[in-house]
Design a protein around this nucleic acid. Structure first.
Length: 420
DNA sequence: TCTGGGGTCCTAGGACCC
DNA sequence: TCTGGGGTCCTAGGACCC
């Protein structure tokens, strides 16, 4: 058995933990740069606020109902996520942290009749220890556990638990489960399947394998098998190293000049390098890209992209920045209003397995010591406290974050004060 | 004025090998 | 008129996830 534990309206719930003023009020959280709605409390959903829509278009609605609006505060969400995951880890012999707000628990060996009480206890403990409400879906495969979790949220929101323990329960649940809500069916497949008359998970489950594989590929076939209760996916307790790492941001204001864009690109490249070192990997290639504002039809559009290869794989900030800036110089053109830039590193290999360049003049041990020193200082004093000069200081391109809540749990200055 | 930021996997087709 | 049979690797594009 797998249990999928999913935090309810996670970012919105995080904003509530240390801010009782918004406890029973509608809350929404915006994407980076205060762009789109990416999380909504139950009250906000009831007002008809859609997921993913641009916030400026519904500004009057937000005002009218006194919706509490927050910029994304990933320092806060990341820290609360860790607390939730640590709490969950105490409950299960095996846990896979699937995303910032979800984890699969392996319940192998547990007696079926003990599961309902167990699930209730998990739920109670997490909310008591972290302030974050969660829902549980429990079933024989991950895909069914996902579906059960959705049912728990939609149909049994008071209890927050859905346990599909036998075939009768599974087929009853799938008979009115919309295919577009299945884990693995996205927009395109959903449209395609509905056009063929397949509307429920139960219908999909009964289609023959060859048709599924032909139209939905091997991935779709595995998903259908999982709906039938045949496990195709196991618990992944240790996440594999990333094969690509990307750091990209929209600018608070459109940028035209080379200087601020190059500082942004250097900063993104530095972030990629730090992530590489964190998973003790090195990258063979780096890509840099620019984007103009695609929503402005009257402005000239330009989406250039350049990939360069290192003579030997690296995770050194200075080397990755240099190569990214070389790429930027090749694609940058004057007279465009750029809205976004990004850096991606790929061809990732373990740092211990880098193919050396016979003619390299780099002093690798010195470079490694330098990066370790930099990471140590920044771990204590804050990100980019020690940085490469090309990253700049004024961050003219920085994000818009006008409604940021305090970092209650990660900054001394932001600690709550309680008056007695 | 204002529209996010990360990732993975699979398939088809072309280039190339013997 | 007829033109083998077996592979690998890479890339672009399309699907999906949070």
């Amino acid at each position: 058995m797998f249990a999928l534990v999913d935090c309810n309206n996670f970012y919105a719930s995080c904003e509530r933990v240390f801010n009782p003023k918004v406890k029973n009020k509608p809350v929404v959280v915006l994407s980076n740069n205060d762009g789109c709605i990416i999380a909504r409390s139950a009250e906000a959903k009831k007002l008809g606020i859609e997921m993913g829509g641009p916030a400026f278009k519904i500004e009057p609605l937000l005002q009218k109902h006194g919706v509490a609006v927050f910029s994304s505060n990933y320092a806060l969400y990341g820290d609360l996520s860790e607390r939730v995951m640590t709490t969950l880890a105490e409950f299960a012999p095996a846990i896979e942290v699937y995303s910032i707000d979800e984890a699969f628990l392996g319940l192998h060996g547990m007696r079926l009749d003990a599961i309902p009480d167990y699930a209730a206890e998990v739920r109670q403990r997490v909310v008591q220890w972290t302030g974050i409400p969660v829902s549980l879906g429990i079933a024989h495969t991950k895909t069914l556990a996902k579906a059960a979790n959705r049912i728990a949220k939609k149909k049994f929101s008071d209890k927050g638990i859905c346990f599909l323990d036998n075939e009768t329960a599974v087929s009853a649940a799938l008979s009115d489960f919309d295919i577009s809500d299945i884990w693995g069916i996205g927009r395109r497949y959903s449209v395609f399947l509905k056009a063929k008359g397949v509307k429920t998970a139960l219908q999909l489950r009964n289609i023959d394998d060859s048709w599924i594989q032909r139209h939905l590929s091997i991935v779709g076939l595995k998903m259908v098998h999982e709906l039938r209760g045949i496990p195709c996916y196991t618990l992944e307790e240790r996440p594999p190293a990333k094969q690509n790492i990307c750091n990209a941001r929209s600018f608070g204001h459109a940028q035209g000049e080379f200087e601020p864009i190059s500082e942004a690109v250097a900063t993104f490249a530095a972030a990629c390098a730090a992530k590489l070192r964190k998973q003790t990997s090195s990258a063979n290639i780096v890509s840099v890209f620019l984007e103009t504002n695609r929503f402005k039809e009257d402005e000239a559009q330009y989406f250039p992209y350049k990939t360069l290869t290192f003579p030997e794989a690296t995770n050194a900030t200075n080397e990755i920045i240099k190569m990214a800036l070389d790429g930027l110089k090749m694609i940058y053109r004057k007279n465009y209003r750029y809205k976004k830039a990004g850096v991606m590193v790929g061809g990732i290999v373990p740092a211990s397995e880098v193919q050396m360049d016979l003619f390299s003049k780099t002093d690798h041990s010195k470079q490694k010591a330098l990066m370790e020193a930099m990471d140590k200082v920044n771990a204590v004093l804050g990100r980019d406290k020690v940085r490469i000069a090309s990253q700049g200081f004024d961050r003219e391109w920085r994000l818009r974050q006008e409604r940021l809540s305090p970092c209650y749990t990660t900054r001394w200055d932001d600690l709550l004060t309680i008056r007695l």
